[in-house]
Design a binder for these strands. Structure first.
Lengths: 341, 341
DNA sequence: TTGTACGCGTTATCAA
DNA sequence: TTGATAACGCGTACAA
């Protein structure tokens, strides 16, 4: 029975390299992974053969044989959102010289989509999973608990981590910025929110708590939509809010895109900022400091969260026990011209 | 000799499912891939067994056995850049109901990094490769030609596609917007550019060509940096440009972030836009239309390019020959208040 | 429509 | 330090 034709595109395999270098296949494998455990002589022959053949390791075969994929699965709710773009940048930078790869999945703010993606990713036997927020479905939590790999929830903290967590309290963020507005002398402080995902909801809760403490809360001050955030949406929501409450003297925006839209609308309508209207955003995009007037916001350590999430994952992959399972990064209120009255 | 302990984490395999469902392993495999080719009765038994066992397909094993990974490798120069965030969104949406996965790599605008990533991705035997621009290194081109899978270069067009291409001419984009500024009556038109990657260089070339046609070109009008683009950088570069050429009456910004920075700086310095200074950007981010004054820009079909690139890749994977290897999507000049004088 | 035998390219195990 | 052998879990080819 003659050997069948090779299925793979005829690309060189580890056996080809071994033959050419005059060694066993396993020695080639070792030379590639742990060069120190192979004698210098053989290593050089092998390197030469690899170069001549243009050999490229088949990651699928490696993953199958070693039952782990050197892949970190990452689930974020959006790729368009600057916030998660920064997180992902931090994740990449956190990889450093490890041979880990990042596989990014976009949940589109849907728990069900997260479940679906998780199924797919788990099928790759990732070395770790990083995912956003703390509102996973019961099924997702079950999948992750059974996956047997480190899991890092990011951008938020809570009391019941699947495994590890790093982020900050969105309730406290919302509360801090709202208190600042109150202290600045504003009294009719509106909340403008888009998307209204769980983190936005919690920012709203912080806003409400702060206003209630001060006896200033009024439901009509809250203007939200589930539509995705954008600058133009900021303009629209602000118009709506002003129509509802003509005495509005400040707005806390769910995020910075909205705040910029509000600022442009104030400029257009000749509403003085911060004199007539105070504006505060959330996340502190780079633009906020450059805007005229510059816009108050809550600086969230997105990039850092990304870096440290990978560091936590790498430590756990290496078998280390985390010092703390839940890491609170905090946030920083950036007071600027838009609320300086 | 007793069977050794299983290497994998003891997760159920296709054989376990087959045993439980009382069928052959291959029937389970088929039921998963091509349900129509398995009798309804068996299919139901199999689905039940899968659910009860919590079976998850091992994608690595599938990829190894079938010599293809159902993965599209995507290389973009940046994830922070809104432009590529939109492209990636388009790519995801283009996937539709296919069982393809996207694996995103970030080249950080480096040809060498692109090469390195390509090596890694090719090791996964992707079904297709999507990459940005037309300036790949010779090595990258060689790797791709040998990969034997469809390749789509996006965001730009040129005369020598590796395989397929979809995008538009950045030279023409730069030329169009510059001509518009000239027609609007501006005479001392500056160019402000950050990053200055190949596409930025070509926008600059278009700008220069248009000004030279009109006899208005002057090297001192050009202010660039290789630093990454940002709103604050737009402010800085505009200040530099104005210091060099105090008679400056308009600026074409390499991209919209810079343009927004210029607008804020004009507001702060009380330079009337468009009266005293005209401003034009590139890419037409959503914000441009909301800004006050709204900002002229070149709308680039980023999302669409993403979608169509995947469509082209899918067609090629399915064995179809493309109608055209190079697709010019064009662009659209959006005339707005910032240049309406 | 279903099943059998084998191979995919690599690594773990164990022995030399 | 090196190598032979047997998995890893699934899909292809072919036969029934």
């Amino acid at each position: 029975m003659r050997p069948r034709t090779r299925r793979g595109g005829g690309r060189p395999t580890i056996a080809d390299v071994a033959r050419k270098a005059g060694v066993g296949a396993i020695t080639v494998s070792r030379a590639l992974r742990e060069p120190d455990r192979v004698s210098r002589e053989l290593r050089e022959q092998i390197d030469k053969a690899v170069a001549e053949l243009g050999y490229v390791l088949d990651r699928n075969a490696r993953a199958l044989a070693s039952a782990r994929a050197d892949v970190v699965a990452v689930l974020v709710p959006s790729l368009t959102n600057n916030v998660f773009a920064d997180v992902v940048r931090g994740l990449y930078d956190g990889l450093g010289d490890s041979h880990l790869q990042l596989h990014i999945g976009n949940t589109h703010y849907s728990g069900l989509e997260e479940e679906r993606l998780l199924q797919g990713f788990i099928g790759q036997r990732p070395s770790a999973v990083v995912l956003s927020g703390i509102d996973q479905t019961a099924t997702s939590r079950a999948i992750l608990k059974e996956a047997g790999c480190p899991v890092v929830q990011i951008m938020e903290i809570g009391t019941d981590p699947i495994d590890m967590m790093i982020g900050f309290s969105h309730v406290e963020g919302g509360r801090a910025v709202t208190r600042h507005l109150i202290e600045a002398g504003y009294r009719r402080i509106g909340f403008i929110g888009a998307r209204m995902d769980p983190r936005s909801q919690r920012r709203l809760a912080g806003y409400r708590a702060a206003l209630e403490e001060a006896g200033l809360f009024d439901l009509r001050l809250v203007t939200t939509t589930t539509a995705p955030s954008s600058v133009s949406l900021g303009r629209e929501l602000f118009r709506d809010a002003l129509a509802k409450v003509p005495t509005l003297d400040a707005v806390f925006c769910n995020n910075d895109d909205l705040a910029v839209g509000v600022l442009f609308e104030c400029n257009r309508a000749a509403l003085a900022v911060p004199g007539k209207i105070g504006i505060a955003g959330f996340n502190d995009l780079e633009m906020m400091d450059v805007a005229y007037p510059s816009i108050t916001s809550v600086r969230t350590p997105r990039y850092d969260i990304g870096r440290r999430a990978i560091a936590m994952a790498r430590a756990a992959i290496a078998g280390e026990r985390p010092e703390q399972r839940v890491v609170d990064t905090g946030f920083e209120l950036m007071r600027r011209e838009s609320t300086a009255r």
